[in-house]
Structure formats: structure tokens, C-alpha cells
Design a protein around this nucleic acid. Structure first.
Ligand SMILES: [Mn+2]
Ligand SMILES: [Mn+2]
Ligand SMILES: [Zn+2]
Ligand SMILES: [Zn+2]
Lengths: 140, 140
DNA sequence: TTCCGCAAAGATAATAATTCTTATTTAGTA
DNA sequence: TACTAAATAAGAATTATTATCTTTGCGGAA
């Protein structure tokens, strides 16, 4: 899992550093679209000296190099996602829980719709659904 | 236009104050999904003494009372929307411009899709498309 | 092997958006 | 008109994020 990431870093001409690896691993392991702070907390165990600024800087550059994605919420906190495939999000406003929603059939439906119904004056690069609601069995 | 808003405030048991009316008007007139700061700047002309905290508090309570909606972006700034009808957003990451995209046919398509394809363990209350891309003729 | 250049990390100050606190004012009501 | 809960103003505080500046450590040239 880490080798994939190391290779990706090298592809983009980014140095492979323990901090970068640790931050990426944290995002993957935490897997609930963590915040920068979640990452810091998680990492502190094995990297007690990591700097807050470094975490933000690494997150930014990983987003820029398309190894992570930003996830928007209603709140004033940015969250991050290691899942790069084209997927949507289920978002519960009450608990702030965000789950991935992958649905190839839906993607196809929407893409086909927009091929037939072009939006005038706008070049679409990405379409994402924000599905707001409430999880039923909060057994997690 | 202001009477609609006054009535809405009363319906919700909120006092009609000049600040609330002015803030609501600002959102409507600015109409490009303004930030709190945009609102403050706009309002300062006629309400030089309005307090920043008041603007944030009013915005919050109007959102809570469903007279405004929050609009998420990639940035660390919240934006607000007075258009309450179920619509989507065209978002240009370069210029931060956000335009409404209303499409009843699309809404129907998506609603029908989710009636046939229920998401398990999740009660949907709202589905919104974030359409990212670039505006063609930036004549605005 | 030493030295250099440089990207990255660490420490910490600064900033920007938002929230909180407290005293004062106001809108709605009796 | 007077009363009272609700709302506002002012400004401090907090939170998330960014910027600055210094230090570290690796890779390649001498
Ligand atoms: Mn901020
Ligand atoms: Mn903030
Ligand atoms: Zn995701
Ligand atoms: Zn809108």
C-alpha cells in the first residue's frame, strides 16, 4: 500500500519522506474523510515531532499532485479523501459523518444526460453529488 | 420583496429588525452567492454601524430558519444563497464564481433514479450537484 | 570524503474567518 | 407608555490555516 504511494510521489518528482508517507497512511487508515487535525492526532503517536505546518503543507501538495482530494462540508474545516475514483458522498449534517457512495450506473446516467443537454457557457470538468441526509443504523 | 421576507421572519417567530432585513436584501441583491464579508461591505453604506458579529449571527439564524442556504466551496469561506428552490451550482475553481443551475428535468431524472435504487442505511433529505468547470464567456 | 545546493521539515508568528462575551438597545406586546 | 425577551454592538477570543524563517538531511560534484 505504501509502495503505491512511494511510486506516485516519485512520478510527480516529489521526494519520499517519512512525513509524507505517514500523512498519506493516516488519511487511508482513518478513512472517514479526516481533517488536518485528525491526521495530526493520529500521526503524533509515531511522529511526536511532526509540525502542524508540515501537515498542512503536505496535504496541500498531495492535493495539488492529485494523490488526495479535498472534501467540502458545511463547516469551516477542510477534510481529505484518499479515494480518487469518481465517487459521491453521503453526508450527515448532524453527525458530520461522510461516507463514500460509488455508483457507476448513476455516473453513466448523469454523464449521458449532460452529453445530450449541454450547459451553455460552461465547460464541465467534474460532477459530484452531495447527498445529504441521515444514516439509519449508526452501528459504527 | 421585503414584505415576503418580513412575513417569513414573523412566521418563524423572529423579530423583524433593520439588520435582518438589510442582510437578507444584501444576499438577494449581491446574488452571486456572497460571503459574510461581501454582505458587510454592501451593508456598510446604509448601516455604517452594523457589527460583524451581528452579520454572522443573523446569517446563521436565517440558515437555521430556512430563509437562506449555505453554499460550500473549496475555500475556507462560507457563502450564502437566497435561492431556496432545489437547484444546483456551476462552480469555477479558478475564479470562485458560482452560478445557479436549475434543471427540472435533471432533478426528475435523479429523483426517479433514487426511487428505484435506494441507498441502504441512508435516508436522503437533499441531493445537490456540484458541477465544477470553467465559464466560457467571462463577459460578466 | 567533504562540500554544496536545495527541497523539505520544524518552530512559531501572523492572518483570516468565525464565534463568544458582555453591556446596551430595540421590537413586539400588554 | 412601560416591560421584557430578544437582538445588536463592540471588541476579545478562538480556530483553522498560512507565512516566515531557520534548520535538517539527502544526492551529486569536486
Ligand atoms: Mn480560516
Ligand atoms: Mn476558520
Ligand atoms: Zn470519499
Ligand atoms: Zn444558488
Amino acid at each position: 500500500m505504501t509502495t503505491f504511494f512511494r511510486e506516485k510521489l516519485q512520478e510527480r518528482g516529489l521526494k519520499v519522506t517519512p512525513q509524507r508517507v505517514a500523512i498519506y497512511e493516516a488519511i487511508v487508515k482513518l478513512n472517514n474523510h479526516p481533517t488536518a487535525e485528525n491526521v495530526i492526532e493520529y500521526i503524533k503517536v509515531n511522529h511526536p515531532n511532526i509540525s502542524v505546518g508540515t501537515v498542512y503543507k503536505v496535504l496541500d501538495s498531495l492535493v495539488e499532485n492529485e494523490l488526495l482530494k479535498k472534501v467540502k462540508t458545511e463547516k469551516d474545516i477542510m477534510r481529505y479523501d484518499a479515494v480518487l475514483s469518481n465517487h459521491h458522498h453521503l453526508y450527515c449534517a448532524e453527525t458530520d459523518r461522510i461516507e463514500d457512495y460509488e455508483d457507476e450506473k448513476l455516473n453513466k446516467l448523469i454523464n449521458e444526460y449532460f452529453i445530450k443537454n449541454k450547459i451553455k457557457n460552461f465547460n464541465v470538468t467534474d460532477i459530484k453529488l452531495q447527498i445529504t441526509g441521515k444514516f439509519k443504523n449508526n452501528k459504527k
